[in-house]
Write a protein that binds this DNA or RNA. Structure first.
Lengths: 231, 231
DNA sequence: TAGCTGATTATGTAATACTTAATGACGGCT
DNA sequence: AGCCGTCATTAAGTATTACATAATCAGCTA
């Protein structure tokens, strides 16, 4: 029995196809020649010939890089390297329903970590505009009558925080993960009935208006406490 | 002039190839039928015929999903859905040299955010083992004579923190981003000469040994202060 | 029963031909 | 001379065919 397990650990023998090899070849090519966005890369036929494979295989490899936004191709003009969106890859994989329970849970933990650690970016980049927007959301929330409206405010509030942080990559990260969060929260809400932490959104806004950046992390921790207790 | 800018905003007209369409088709297929890892998906020829495209195009789409680890294929057995590694996509894109300056900076900010927010995971999951390991690293660091050795300790210390957090996804995230961090730190170190925050690694370990999880976030903030000041 | 053999099946690879869009050059027109 | 339309060219996108390869199964034989 343990022998079998050991055998499995040897993994299904890393079988690499021609397309795989061409892909890594292209990556290396790009890196070694330090090709920059906008620079052209060789034609499909040239690559095929140079590597001694069919154009078909080359196209598979290129198709992958294209999906990740690493290259763009126009007819006749050939293909050029493009500045990829770092988070594109994440976006392509993350779909709540195909992720397994545990990974969803881990991603949600990641969110908690991010929001607690967000303080310094917020205090450095906050603006009147953002703070007013938060005020408006808090007000909307207090007037809200339905659960749906409250949840919408909850989402808006935290999204606005990410906006405030002034980090596009982080914001994008959050946008991609959002659907997963909603999924988890929905699950959690079946356990405890939307219990609220001892620090409210209004409290957080008050802190953000001030200058005491030390107060933020633990305030946010208290705000998120209901979630943290699930860990 | 403003007219030209407006024209550019119309974007390069979302030109979608057959492969793109087949790809999204497959994604929808998988999601709508709620196919689980291990389940088989139709044969290449079946897909091609069903969608009225050449097998070639289908293979390009499948090749993409395969790269992301969403499917696996064996000859004859056909293809099966697999549990993708969420961070695979990131790994495929992130290479320090092809990322632009600004993105690298943003990713580094992300790191700072993560480490400050890490506290709750650490206090919930810490173990004697991990703490002892941190002790050892601190000791090694204090005995270190070369700059290289100190940097190695720095990396080990923070990596161990991520281990301690007991979140595989987060750990993987950190592992992927690491090369970028090193890149940024190298850049930073040319500005100020590895100035150290007022809280040392030893101080952090002391806090982690204790029970006061409130102390962690601001301690880590002080530790990272030299970096934070660059924001 | 065990094991060999060959048929079958689905993916991997190659080769060819054609379509389409973008580019540029040529040549004619005002 | 400068503008414009036409046409050839180029490289990517798509389709088709053929074959290689590996895994699986069924059937046959010892």
């Amino acid at each position: 029995m343990s022998i079998e397990k050991d055998l499995f650990k040897l993994k299904p023998i890393a079988y690499t196809t021609m397309a795989d090899q061409v892909e890594t070849h292209l990556r290396e090519y790009i890196i070694k020649r330090s090709i920059k966005p906008g620079d052209p890369i060789p034609k499909e036929t040239e690559i095929a010939q140079a590597l001694g494979v069919s154009r078909n295989v080359v196209r598979e490899a290129l198709s992958r890089l294209r999906m990740l936004g690493m290259i763009e191709s126009r007819k006749k003009r050939g293909m050029i390297l493009t500045q990829p969106d770092v988070m594109k890859g994440l976006e392509l994989i993350i779909h709540p329903t195909i992720l397994d329970e545990n990974v969803r849970k881990e991603l949600f933990e990641l969110r908690l970590v991010l929001e607690v650690g967000l303080g310094d970016l917020l205090f450095r980049r906050k603006s009147e505009e953002h703070l007013k927007k938060l005020d408006a959301i808090v007000e909307r929330e207090q007037k809200a009558t339905t659960q749906i409206e409250r949840i919408r405010c909850e989402i808006d509030f935290h999204s606005t925080l990410y906006d405030m942080a002034g980090n596009e990559t982080l914001k994008r990260f959050q946008d991609i993960l959002m659907p997963v969060f909603e999924y988890v929260v929905e699950y959690e809400s079946k356990l405890d009935h939307t219990s609220v932490g001892s620090v409210t959104h209004a409290d957080l806004v008050k802190i953000l208006y001030g200058n005491n950046s030390e107060a933020y992390p633990n305030a946010m921790r208290k705000h998120l406490m209901p979630h943290l207790e699930h860990l």
